[in-house]
Structure formats: structure tokens, C-alpha cells
Design a binder for these strands. Sequence first.
DNA 1: CCTTGACTTAGAGCGCGCTCAAACCCCTAG
DNA 2: CTAGGGGTTTGAGCGCGCTCTAAGTCAAGG
Lengths: 141, 141
Amino acid sequence: MQIGELAKRSGLSAHTIRYYERIGLLPYADRDAGGRRDYDEAILVWIAFLDRLKTTGMPIREMLQYAKLRAAGDHTGPARRRILEAHRDRVRAHVRDLQASLLVLDTKIDTYVETEKRTHSHDDTEHSFDEQQTRARPARP
Amino acid sequence: MQIGELAKRSGLSAHTIRYYERIGLLPYADRDAGGRRDYDEAILVWIAFLDRLKTTGMPIREMLQYAKLRAAGDHTGPARRRILEAHRDRVRAHVRDLQASLLVLDTKIDTYVETEKRTHSHDDTEHSFDEQQTRARPARP
DNA sequence: CCTTGACTTAGAGCGCGCTCAAACCCCTAG
DNA sequence: CTAGGGGTTTGAGCGCGCTCTAAGTCAAGG
């Protein structure tokens, strides 16, 4: 499989794949006779895992650490586990944060909905900076 | 309240507060006799809300849209509501994503833990690129 | 043979969200 | 009177994670 197909199948762009290889997130790929990268299906599994780390907000420099530990041999298992555990904890905390924020959003949206129900437009939730300079309610004609 | 205290109380740096004012996220603050920004407590509420939007991943340019609608008057309530609803939906989707990823992380961590239980270090989860070049297990001395 | 198009490299550029620097002003305490 | 510590402005710089450009190579199809 060459880079174009891997791009399609992995969802990364070919540019990004090369970039990842350069920085060490992806292995230096074998080249074919013409000097082109030739990938094995197996790489897809690794990329999928990287994607998980990425979507959960792990910075590249930390993925790199993980990748290097892996490359360093089986004995680094515990260190890798600790990285993942720390990351998991951060993700959990982030999820809690997001859920709290969702409640706030829901509440805020509700106040907008209530206001709209009362037909005439009027917003009495907490004050934003423009409150002073807000021209008097434009009293729909 | 001048900018230093607001910085302390809001958690933003004074630099960031000025930057937010420049780009329009925060109102142009009143200046005191000496030309310094003089804030009212009320600003804290708005900053707290911006923080919610920020921690839930709303890009600044969208917060700006929201801020401008608010400044445009009460009649923009429905538009603001729609922005928040769209954002809420994205956040919900993201939370689901994160939760799915947490399961993956937990599973992966478990395999590390299991491996460690078996005392000798050995990792047989899916293969990373270094598998070929991995030196034979360094057989703890 | 020639074109097409997918690939190669090194390196520059970009969008985001700050973050800091330089040069200056003003107030207060010692 | 002076030193210090807050503030002001404009504009440059930075870290991140890509993303793209330029110039070149190669293999297959017409």
C-alpha cells in the first residue's frame, strides 16, 4: 500500500503522514524500488490508536514519548501504562468539565427559549458588557 | 477594579485581557483619570461565560460572533440561541467521542496491567512499527 | 516517445491563541 | 526627589499541528 491509499484509509493526509514520519510518530516506512513508501496494513492499527490519543487531546510530544518507549522494547510496558493512566485521568477530568459546561449551556439556552416564548424579544440573563451601550429595546414596529 | 486585580480574579492574564479587548471579546473598558482600565464586577460574569465557551472548545471567532450579536441588541436572542444550540450539540458529540476513547484507553491499560501481572515483561497487544527492530526481550538478569 | 499523475525531498508558511517586548506614563511611599 | 510598581500602547514573536510549495523522480498508458 502506498501513501495515497494509506491516506484514504487512515483519514490522514499524505502530507500529514510524511510529517508524522519525520517527527517520529510513524516508523520510517520501507521504500519500494522507486523510493516510495510501502505500507503494511498493520500501520492502520497504530494510526487508529494515535487518533484516539489525538482526539482525546494528547499533545504530539507526549505521543512521541509513548512511541519511543514502545520502540525501546517490551520492558517499557509499565512506563507506557503510566502515561496512558495519567492521560486517562486527564480525559476523565475533562469530560466532567464538559458535562458541567453542558449544564450551563442548557440553562442558558433555556432562558433564551423562555424569552422567545414571551414573544417580545427581551433578555434578562446575566449582564454582558454591552448592557450600558445597548440602545433601548427596538420595540418591534 | 483595575486590570491586575481583574486578572487575579478572572484567572486570565492582564496580557490576555487586553488582547481580548483588542479583538472585541471584552468591551472597551472605561479608563480612569490616568488612562487605566477600570472594571466593574459585572465583567467577571461575562468572562466566566467566555471561559465556559473556551473550555468547551468554541473558537474565538465564534465567541466573537456571539459577543457581537449581544452588542447588537436584544433582538438577536434567537440567533445567539442557535449558536449555543449548535455548540452544545458539538460538545455533546465530543463528549461521546471522549467516552468511547476512554473505553479504549481502559482496555489498553488493562492489557498492560495483565502483562505486568505475568511478571516477565511482554507485550502482545497490537503491533507497533518497531516490532521488527525490537531487540529480543532483554530477559531481566 | 511522451504525457500524466502519484510519488519524493527540504523547507517555508499558516491559523490559532496567546505572550511578550519596548518605550512610555503615572501614583505612592520612603 | 526618587525609586518602584503598577499601568498604557503598538507590534513582534511563539508553540502547536499541520499544510503547502518547489523542484525533481518514476511507472504506466496512449
